[in-house]
């Protein structure tokens, strides 16, 4: 832990979590979206306001009749969808340019983050898990530690980690052998510094190695863990680390994940991601037209 903190202290400009994400996270935890406050958050940010209008007019959420008014868009989308859109869009600033240390092309890490959010949402629904939106958020933020690896090691990262890679060793084990810590631990620590609730920090920290025999076991961690693997199978955010991760047996069994459900989740995750991307593209074309 000391080493982790030392590393975070060394980074001059740690990525900051937008305050809007923190506020929406609080709403998620309490379970009640406050539409007036969401409106305030959105009105303060012109780019976000445009995004909300696009979504309201997109194939994904839209109904016949175009709307140009923000308030009307907010009502059309509803509190739950708005919370997700705010999180999705505000978190994109963190991920969009990240991932170069892991060999990810620009935008790939963002697609992986959103894919993880959608996969976690899907698995949570299948399992009738109470905190679906929290799964979405944790799926979205699970790899924030990779951003720190990017900032700290830059282009030296691959050379160092490669010396410790072995065919049967999971990638987080390779990272620990190389650096004394892995990206999940760093992500958990960063989330703690951001002041996020412990449940979220733990879901990020353990998303590759969910603990098996915890007395107060939180299924949120298991869902985010499985969502990460579903994302890999959907071909999202695969970098130098390849598929060098394990799906924990107790999670597989606990979530009743078999071949059929996994393949359905893979297909669904990818399709929902494309729907979001296409909706945004269509809305942009309409605007420009």
């Amino acid at each position: 832990m000391a080493q982790l903190n030392e590393m975070l202290d060394q980074i001059e400009h740690l990525p900051a979590l937008p305050s809007s994400v923190i506020r929406v996270t609080e709403m998620l935890i309490s379970g009640e979206p406050d539409l007036n406050e969401i409106e305030q958050i959105i009105r303060m940010d012109e780019a976000l306001s445009m995004t909300i209008l696009r979504y309201a007019n997109s194939a994904l959420y839209g109904r016949p009749g175009r709307i140009f008014d923000l308030r009307e868009s907010l009502v059309r989308l509803g509190g739950k969808a708005l919370m997700k859109i705010v999180l999705e869009q505000q978190a994109s600033s963190l991920f969009l340019k990240a991932g170069s240390a892991y060999g990810l092309r620009r935008g790939a890490m963002w697609r992986g983050a959103l894919g993880g959010a959608l996969a976690a949402d899907q698995i949570a629904r299948t399992n009738n898990f109470a905190d679906i939106d929290l799964c979405f958020l944790c799926g979205l933020l699970r790899d924030i530690g990779k951003i720190i690896m990017d900032l700290h090691f830059a282009n030296d990262y691959l050379e160092v980690v490669e010396k410790h890679m072995q065919p049967d060793r999971s990638f987080v084990e390779c990272e620990r052998a190389a650096f004394g810590m892995d990206h999940a631990q760093i992500g958990g620590e960063l989330a703690l510094r951001w002041g996020l609730p412990e449940r979220i920090c733990n879901a990020i920290r353990f998303h590759h190695e969910p603990p098996e025999h915890e007395p107060d076991h939180d299924q949120l961690i298991d869902i985010v863990h499985a969502a990460d693997i579903i994302c890999l199978w959907a071909g999202l955010a695969i970098g130098h680390d390849g598929l060098q991760y394990k799906l924990a047996t107790h999670v597989r069994d606990g979530l009743k994940l078999d071949r059929r459900t996994a393949e359905m989740d893979i297909a669904m995750t990818w399709c929902r991601l494309r729907e979001i991307e296409e909706s945004m593209e269509d809305a942009l074309v309409q605007e420009q037209g």
């Binding site: 049967d168 693997i229 199978w233 390849g242 060098q244 394990k246 799906l247 597989r252 071949r259 996994a262």
Partner: peptide, 12 residues
């Protein structure tokens, strides 16, 4: 490619 330690359950 495969994820690690998939004991035949998925083998995508």
């Amino acid at each position: 490619a495969e994820v690690l330690a998939d004991d035949g359950h998925f083998k995508v």
